[in-house]
Write a protein that binds this DNA or RNA. Structure first.
Length: 445
RNA sequence: CGGGGCGUAGCGCAGCCCGGUAGCGCGACGGUUUUGGGUACCGUAGGUCGUAGGUUCGAAUCCUAUCGCCCCGACCA
């Protein structure tokens, strides 16, 4: 993409309404625009990152054997009357009447609707196990939205629902979700820690939240530093192997890690002093097992292998997709701007032409642009007639992880410069070598 | 929902107390200059002063109502 052909309304100054760094940077980098309290338009750069995050979530869910579908944002109130949550949910639920006076709502979550779909079409244990998920906009009419997309009223969420014939099978689904989530966050450059959590209004027995450590987080967490050393490292998981999944879950849930809601002081103090740690953290996902909480009242039954009709065992599992942008920026930025992890960056690499209009630098940039594009690495080419400083500042602000700088000075020796946004280190090399290096970097992403 | 604050140009702000018909910086646009970290200078465009009503010869400014947004707290993914 050529910057002169793009829509990237960057701001040089900080908007007054933004308090935390991710909100400031998203506004300054032209990623979002607030349309009402807690409701945002996603401008092209932000939309690109949102789509990248979605793609990773989809990929990892399907790798785990979970099946995508799409449910609507608007739901009939009657479904929620069946589960009893229509009255329980309170003012957070946005209630709407259609032209016929029927009660509708903008879904804050989809347990009722997925249960309705399930009960209409599934009769037998032979159809199980089944996990259906979607990535859809939700609305929760928060009293006080804040922190940009981290706590908006409208938000994009992946929510998945497992249906299993018994407890053991449902726990495997739970474990599958934990493992897939760990892989998902790691691909986004995040270290998300599963922590035992409260079940809250969704209800249930077993539940873990995934938290990313950040000073601006809303939760207070206590953990054993040993958990910071754990890595999935892209290890290949056989999701049909119950023991293998359980082993990974065991590995990640053994070190102490809890939010203030479930914090156990005596367990925590039993840790060696130098491993006790406390921090603020951002919640980026949660998994629940809740058994037959919805299947019983809503009549989602299956016939088991003994010919008995039993309520199906369920769980629900969420990832805050739009919130993740904020969380990633909170975890990865410096005083100049965002530093995108390669896995989610809106563009893999930027090209900065230091002398726009110069025959040699223009030609070199065009060559780089074509070569990178041909290798599936769409660059953002700053072809504006701006000074070097302005171009560098913009690139640093929007946070592309790699930058190729093309100037007359280097080009006289046949060299361009490849710079890491994260380390700030630069290396001179031929344009061809720079393309190879960038391709090599992204080969493993 | 309790407490506090703010709505003036795309962004950041001044002007309001003490009424006289709107200004600064940045950005945008045009030009000259400059050319490896937001260059300098000249010029141009852009505002129903959130909205409605009231007081007044006259309202961004005073009064009333209303809407919106932000912050702290409680709540929450």
């Amino acid at each position: 993409m050529r910057l002169t052909r793009y829509f990237l309304p960057v701001l040089r100054e900080n908007p007054a309404e933004a308090q935390i760094v991710s909100h400031r940077l998203m506004l300054r980098a032209g990623m979002i625009r607030q349309q009402a309290a807690g409701i945002y338009s996603w401008l092209p750069l932000g939309f690109r990152v949102l789509r990248r995050i979605e793609a990773i979530v989809h990929d990892e869910q399907q790798r785990a054997g979970h099946i995508p579908l799409l449910m609507p944002t608007l739901q009939p109130a009657d479904l929620w009357r069946e589960s009893g949550r229509y009255d329980d949910y309170g003012q957070e639920m946005l209630r709407i009447k259609d032209r016929h006076g029927r009660d509708m709502l903008y879904g804050p979550t989809n347990e009722e609707m997925i249960t309705d779909i399930f009960r209409a079409h599934v009769e037998s244990y032979k159809s199980l196990p089944l996990t259906l998920y979607h990535i859809q906009w939700k609305f929760r009419d928060e009293v006080r939205p804040r922190f940009g997309v981290m706590r908006g009223r409208e938000f994009l969420m992946k929510d998945g629902y497992n249906f299993d014939v018994d407890y053991d099978s449902a726990m495997h689904a739970y474990n599958r979700h934990m493992v897939s989530y760990l892989r998902t966050y790691e691909r986004m450059g995040l270290h998300a820690i599963p922590m035992r959590a409260d079940s809250g209004p969704i209800g249930g027995d077993d539940t873990h939240e995934f938290l990313v450590l950040a000073d601006t987080g809303e939760s207070e967490v206590f953990y054993d530093k040993a958990i910071l050393d754990l890595k999935m490292g892209g290890r290949n998981v056989d999701y049909t192997d119950r023991a293998a999944c359980a082993a990974i879950v065991h590995e990640w849930t053994t070190p102490y890690a809890r939010t203030d809601e479930t914090h156990d002081v005596s367990l925590y103090h039993a840790l060696p002093q130098d491993r006790q740690a406390t921090s603020r953290a951002i919640e980026v996902g949660q998994i629940f097992y809740f058994g037959t909480k919805y299947s019983e009242p809503m009549g989602a039954m299956v016939v088991n292998e003994h010919g008995e009709r039993v309520p199906v065992h369920m769980g629900s599992h969420g990832i805050g997709v739009s919130r993740l942008l904020g969380a990633i920026i909170e975890a990865s930025h410096d005083d100049k701007g965002i530093v995108w992890p390669e896995g989610v960056t809106p563009f893999p690499v930027g090209i900065v032409n230091l002398r726009q209009g110069d025959t040699a630098t223009d030609a070199a940039c065009d060559m780089l642009y074509a070569a990178l594009t041909a290798r599936g690495l769409e660059p953002l080419y700053d072809d504006r007639d701006e000074r070097a400083g302005a171009k560098f500042a913009s690139m640093d602000l929007i946070g592309l992880p790699w930058r190729i700088t093309v100037g007359p000075r280097g080009l006289a020796n046949g060299k361009v410069e490849l710079t890491s946004r994260r380390s700030g280190e630069s290396e001179e090399m031929s344009p061809e070598a720079a393309v190879d290096r960038v391709a090599q970097i992204y080969a493993g992403v």
